[in-house]
Every structure is written in structure tokens, then in C-alpha cells.
Amino acid sequence: MADVAETRKFIEIEVLRYRPEQDSEPFLQIFEVPFTDDMSVLQGLQYIKDYLDGSLSFRWSCRMAICGSCGMMIDGKPRLSCKTFLRDFHPGRVRVEALAHFPIERDLVIVMDDFIDKLESIKPYIIAKEPRTLEQGEYLQTPAERDVYEQFSSCINCLLCYAACPQYGLNPEFVGPGIMALLHRYNVDSRDGGAAQRMDVVNAEEGVFNCTAVGYCSEVCPKHVDPANAVNQNKTLSAKDYFLRFVTPKGGAR
């Protein structure tokens, strides 16, 4: 039987570092990390933090692709580091950077204040169409009604779609793919009556028309939400309202 130490595999992880108190700009640092075939990129980073450089900063929580914390650029593509495996890059080197299009707070940690602000602005909760009392019971919905929004409700706010969206990178004012998916999720929910309020965000200069249908957001989404579809369906809705608001009795969105 071969010696365990001899069969141990190593991979080079190249990490984009940025320590605001001492670096004027980010730089790449290479770590050599022992790994096994079942190790994720996140576990590789945890190895670095535990054994090689305790100052490395990154966000993570669940390790199972549901918390949405560990999104990073891995080999230039936005991915969840817990769902990406080191073995797929071996024997090459794997480069890990903070999510594109966001300011870097420190190392692999990005500033996500903009996303949180936008999330609040779309009222991401059901605004009951016909409020019911407890005595009246629950809000019922058919499977078909549920099917309309279900895919969009799978969003875990991981921001990979923002890192995939060049239009957001070019103009951070743009509401962006993930927020539009969440907005759409509530607007098309049969129990919700808040669409008119949310359409102001859709119709605004910062709204859906900044999208040029690159479509990469939907490619990188780890939850198959298809945010590009939410954005583009709302272009049609917004344009319809733009032209018909003067002829429809209630002025559409308002």
C-alpha cells in the first residue's frame, strides 16, 4: 500500500488579496493547498485560513449552496465556492477573486450595500391584494398559480447574476438581474396586489431598459432562477404601460 503522504495531491490557489489598511490596490497571492477529490474551493480557502494565512477574508456559511454567501469569481466565472470543486482545476492552478462588478471591501469580501438598498426598494414581501383576517383563513393558491412565480422564488441573493452582468458593472445604478427576479416573483404572485408600486422601479431610468439581453446572468444562476427572463418580461410590461397608460382607464402602473 502506498504511503498516504506520497499520494497526497496539491493544487495552487491564486487569490486576489486586498487589505485596505495596507494595500493601495489588489494583488494576486498563490497558496499551495493539499486537497482531496471531495474538496470544494471553499474548503481550499478554509485550509488557507486555518493553516497558511489567517488574515484571508471571505464570506461563507452553509457549505451547501443555499445561503448564497460564498459567491466568488473562480477562474473568471461567477460561482458558489462551495459548489465548485478543486479537482476540476487540478493539475492547473485555480484563480479566486472577489465577485466582479462590486467594490472589494477586503480580499474576497465585496460591498453589497447597493444590493440591500435595491432589495428594500422593491418591497420584497407579499402586499395582500385582498387582506384576510385570521378567521377567514389562509390565502389559497392553485398549483398553476404557484408555478408562475416558483422559479423566481428560488433566488438565494448570492449576487452571481450581478457579477455576470456587464450592464451592472458599467452602470451600478441599474436595478440588475437578481432584484428584478425577486420583484417579478412578487408581482406575479396571485396573492399579491403590490405590482403598481413596484413597477415604478421597473419603469425608471435605472430600470429594466439598461439590460441588453446579454443573458449571462441566467447561465451562472446556481438556482436556475432565469433572472434574464424576469428582466425581459418586464421590458414588455413596462413598454405596454408606457404606450397604453393614456388610453387605459387606470393608467396602468399607477
Binding site: Y18, P20, E21, E25, P26, G76, K77, A100, H101, P103, I104, E105, V111, P166, G169, L170, V214, G215, Y216, E219
Partner: peptide, 23 residues
């Protein structure tokens, strides 16, 4: 304030990914 967020440049973004080149 120790915070000094670093904003990366967008120049040449479309060369970074084959998907963007095709776009």
C-alpha cells in the same frame, strides 16, 4: 474610517469571458 472599498475597472470587460466576446 478604515474602509476603503476598491472599485475594479471595467475597461476590456468583454474580453474576459468567451460568452461576452460572442455577445
Amino acid at each position: 474610517n478604515p474602509r476603503r472599498p476598491y472599485v475594479r475597472p471595467m475597461a476590456g470587460w468583454w474580453r474576459r469571458n468567451p460568452f461576452f466576446v460572442e455577445y
